[in-house]
Amino acid sequence: MKQITTIAIKEFKDYFISPIAYIVISLFLIVTGWFFFSTFFIFGRADLRDFFSLLPITFSFIIPAVTMRLFSEEKNVGSYETLLTMPVSFTDIALGKFFAATLFSLSLLVPTLSYPLFIAFIGDLDPGPVIGGYIGAVFLAGAYSSIGLFASSLTRNQIISFIIGCAMCFTLTILDKLLFFMPEKIIGIVNYVGSNSHFLNIAKGVIDSRDILYFVSVIFIFVFSTYLVMHEKN
C-alpha cells in the first residue's frame, strides 16, 4: 500500500514537471469550454448537458494523452529497469501509475467547476445532474485511465501508445451507436459493453449499481491486463 502511494505521488508530481500536462490541460479546457459556451451564446441555454454528453468522447482523446507516458517513457529511457529491480511488486507499480493517471485526469475537471458556478450565478442550476455528471466523470476517468495504462504497457513508443489508447477508448464510447450494424443476438451484450450509456445513466443522476459495477470491472480488467503484460514482457 505504501509502495503504491509512493509511486502514485511521484507519477502525479511528474505530470506537473513536464510540459505535456499543461498542453493537455489547456486543450481540455478549450474543447470543453467551447461545448459549454457555444450552447450558451448560440442557443442561450445555460446547462451542462452538452459538456457531459460529450465528455466520453473528449476523455477518449485526452486521457490516452495523459497515460501514454506511464510505461512507454520509462521503457524508452531505461528507468524501467531501475524501477523493476527495486523491491516493488508489479501490482504496486500498475496500481500506483493507475491512481496517478486517474487523479491527474480528475484534476483536469477542477477548472470546469467554474461552469456550474457560472450557471448558478446567472440563473437556475439543477444540482442533481451536475453532481451525477461529476460522479460519472470520476468513474469514466478511472476506466479510461486503466485502458490508457494498458496501452502504455504494450510499447516503448508514446505515440503508438496514445493511438492504441485512443482507439480503444473511442471504440468503447461509440459502441452503442454501432448497434444497428450488429446481429440482433449480441445487441444486448454490445450495449452493455459500451461505456456511453453507463456514463449517461450516472450523469442523469440515476446511480445504479449495475453502472458502477461496469466501470469497476473495466478498471479491474485493464489494470489486471497491465499486470499480465508486465509479467509477460520481463
Partner: peptide, 20 residues
C-alpha cells in the same frame, strides 16, 4: 521481492528519472 530487497543494483548505463 525478497531477493530484490537483498540486492543493490547499478544498471549498465545508470538510467535514472531525468526530470527529477
Amino acid at each position: 521481492l525478497k531477493i530484490k530487497s537483498l540486492i543493490g543494483y547499478l544498471p549498465e548505463s545508470a538510467p535514472l528519472y531525468h526530470n527529477m
